[in-house]
């Protein structure tokens, strides 16, 4: 029973991922085919593909913006989270928790816009804004994950003679992984989504055709940006929705 249920879930998950990935790749690479679909969806327009840049370039920009910000946020966030749990950094734990909930009050796109006077237009304000936005959630999840390791497990690890570092690497981090991965997923998905807004500060990405479509009242441009943006965000979400084997059931 359990086994069949499990298999079905795994098959459903990977079918979804394959469908989303396939759709994204197809939209990106088969410009003619995608144009035919857009033409069918918005028959009254005179142009169906955003003229300034090919979709493949826009998708790449979107992925690049999200990846750069996610990698930076992951590196800085896990460093911050680990620091807040060890040695001198423990003093700052409560502060990180408090600021972490506070930071969500600043809209991402506002942060991007405010950075423009400092960095100029382009991808920089987007990457910096999304990085800043992602650091605290990652740190929070690292803290929550490691603090959530049951004390008796910690005790047992110490009891069988593991040192501090060994305990962290072999017991605490693996057990904290589901929570940490949950944070990573949220940050990556937010970044893939919010990269769409990079268009506002001329960073490129899939927001460009959407904004152009609003501007020219062109449904096809809007859909050309919106459909791959949604597919990418869902793909990131599905791919990163994972549970370790010991936590299933």
């Amino acid at each position: 029973m359990r086994g069949r249920e499990d298999t079905r879930r795994v098959v459903a998950r990977w079918t979804g991922i394959a469908a989303l990935a396939g759709a994204t790749v197809w939209m990106t690479l088969d410009a003619r085919g995608f144009e035919r679909v857009l033409r069918a969806l918005a028959p009254n327009e005179s142009a169906w593909l955003y003229p300034t840049k090919p979709l493949s370039a826009l998708v790449l920009e979107q992925v690049w913006l999200a990846t750069a910000a996610s990698v930076l946020a992951l590196a800085l966030g896990s460093a911050l989270g680990t620091l807040a749990l060890t040695g001198f950094g423990v003093a700052f734990r409560d502060l990180v928790l408090s600021v972490g909930s506070l930071a969500q009050t600043v809209p991402t796109v506002a942060l991007m816009a405010l950075l423009v006077p400092l960095t100029g237009y382009g991808p920089e304000p987007v990457v910096i804004a999304l990085t800043l936005y992602g650091v605290l959630p990652i740190a929070l999840n690292v803290i929550a994950g490691i603090e959530g390791v049951p004390p008796e497990v910690r005790d047992a690890a110490a009891g069988i003679g593991m040192g501090r570092a060994q305990r962290l690497l072999r017991v605490e981090i693996p057990l904290a992984m589901p929570v940490i991965l949950g944070g990573v997923k949220n940050v990556v998905v937010v970044n893939v989504s919010a990269a769409t807004l990079g268009a506002v500060v001329a960073a490129g990405g899939l927001g460009m055709p959407i904004l152009a479509g609003f501007h020219d009242y062109n449904d096809a441009f809007i859909l050309e940006g919106a459909l791959p943006a949604i597919a990418l965000a869902l793909l990131a979400d599905r791919l990163l929705t994972v549970r370790p084997r010991w936590d299933r059931g």
Partner: peptide
Amino acid sequence: QVVPTLAFIGLLYP
């Protein structure tokens, strides 16, 4: 929740 804001508005546009 996952659908990007701008793309969501874009889908609603037509």
